[in-house]
Design a protein around this nucleic acid. Structure first.
Lengths: 141, 141
DNA sequence: AGTGAAAACTATGCTGC
DNA sequence: GCAGCATAGTTTTCACT
């Protein structure tokens, strides 16, 4: 039912009209989805270029054989430039997406990650353009 | 000022209290950011696992030498499983993130992409877990 | 799970600083 | 660019089914 949440910040009253229920009913259902954890929260989508973050890059991180995954993960969590962080199958244990203003800043981040204890090597790939991002999936269930 | 938009769906009145302005002032400023394109929209954050999309994978796509980038991009846009799509520097022209329910579905997608005219090869990496995603950056300006 | 009514609160247009 | 005010619309609680 809440496929309609590709656009948060619509009123419960408007939602109610679109799904053919009363506003309190929608309110209750959304409340349940929130406490279920199905709806995690609501985010404003900011244009990264408009706030001086025109450079997007992906970095794959290889750990050294003795490295502790949790330690590396914790070190990465301290870096605010990392928008997404995944623990991966394969040689590269982590894959992250970073957003910065300049290539020089990207270089600093790559160097900083390379110095994290437990990191053996990194591989950086730069996005030339974003075709799309965060496209909502048609929810089936 | 709008660092506070890690949580959309808060009222203008509440925002106004938090930033020490009147509600109409906040309304006006947000309206400007929206028409500027700085604020692109508002999204509800849905837990992918909760809606049967427990498998996240990244796919790098190599084009063949005669391939047309726009054609490949258009073909990818038709696949709703692709949540993010970037045009990249390097051997792999595109990098995409897909979200599916099962590994079998992932296989189908990889096969389908491999058959797109202009695609030479693909490389798939599977996420074992998501450490975090869409973490909002502290906006400076 | 849903409805309708009611009270409190919010959005938003306007006027003036 | 912001505040104050006014009104229409919205949120949220509650009793009822």
């Amino acid at each position: 039912m809440e496929l309609l949440r590709g656009n948060a910040r619509i009123s419960y009253a408007e939602l109610a009209r679109q799904v053919g229920l009363s506003a309190p009913a929608v309110h209750e259902r959304v409340g349940k989805l929130e406490s279920n954890g199905v709806l995690r929260g609501y985010q404003a989508e900011v244009d990264p270029e408009a706030v001086g973050l025109g450079v997007t890059a992906f970095i794959g991180i290889v750990q050294d054989s003795g490295g502790d995954t949790d330690d590396v993960g914790a070190a990465l969590r301290e870096m605010p430039e990392i928008e997404d962080c995944y623990f991966m199958a394969g040689l590269e244990s982590f894959q992250i997406k970073v957003r910065v203003g300049t290539i020089a800043e990207l270089e600093q981040i790559v160097v900083r990650i390379g110095r994290v204890p437990g990191v053996a090597s990194t591989r950086t790939a730069i996005a030339l353009s974003t075709k799309w991002e965060h496209r909502p999936q048609p929810v089936v269930r």
